[in-house]
Amino acid sequence: MRAVVDIPEATRPVRQRPDTEPIAACLLAAPAFALILLLFILPTLAVFVIATTDWQFGARSLSFVGLRNFAELLADSTFRISFANTCLYVLVVVPATTAIGLAVALLIESGQSLRAFYRAVHFLPFMATLAAMAVAWEALLHPTIGLANQTLTALGLPTANWLRDERTVLPVLGLIGIWQNLGFAMVLFLAGLKSIPSELYDASEIDGADGTFDRLRIVTLPMLGPVTMFVVIVVALRAFQTFDTVKILTQGGPAKASEMLLYTLYVESFEFLRTGYGAAVTVVFLAIVVGLTLLQARVMDKRVHYQ
């Protein structure tokens, strides 16, 4: 026997109100999503494509040349000098910035008085407009009326035309790089020092490590290890991106002695309008930056385990 059962009103499945959350979310995220695609992802892909062409900006035609731009790059003496200069610059600026930044941070943290003042003074160059400060540096390094040469003359030391001399120009740019970035390194180290638990210093004191040197060796420096790696990579990233001082002070000269990667990229792409070639330089630059950033991500990962 079959019974027709009428489901009572109350037990019928309630019709779900349509879930609007995904729709709202898509609307909220859409502008950012579209802009990231348009302004970051597609241009990056475009760089790789352009790098395989012989396109000159403004030319009507272009053809696929494969990796020829990269081959040309390796053979190009300007690029090789530029690459070598950049590496040399980074190798000088990074260790010096890290070491001085650490020393200043340790000194500031070792006492109570004037902490904020010293921090402000050392951090100032990092946020000051570098283009304007480059102009000030030029006046400072002026061969006749600059403070640098006047001081050296007064002390009876040899002077130099710092920005026009092949031997001095890169070290001088390096000095400016250190001057600009060390406050940044200092701030990161200060944060690192603050995060060392004070019980560790107590423990080391009871264990007998109560001299300044022992405290540094047993507690402070090892505990700063991860921060130091982080500082090294971040400063390296900034050093690889040096542009303003080269553009304003030297234009890569004299005789390409201060030619650096980003400046080469700029000149090839936007002054000579060798678009394909410029894109190849850009790819090299991107590879370096991405490599360093991934290294940094690994270091940060490690820091989690370090605790």
Binding site: D202, P222, Y306, Q307
Partner: peptide, 11 residues
């Protein structure tokens, strides 16, 4: 002394 957080040297 034994500390509340143990204060072992993590490295």
């Amino acid at each position: 002394m034994v500390f509340q957080s143990y204060a072992l040297y993590p490295h």
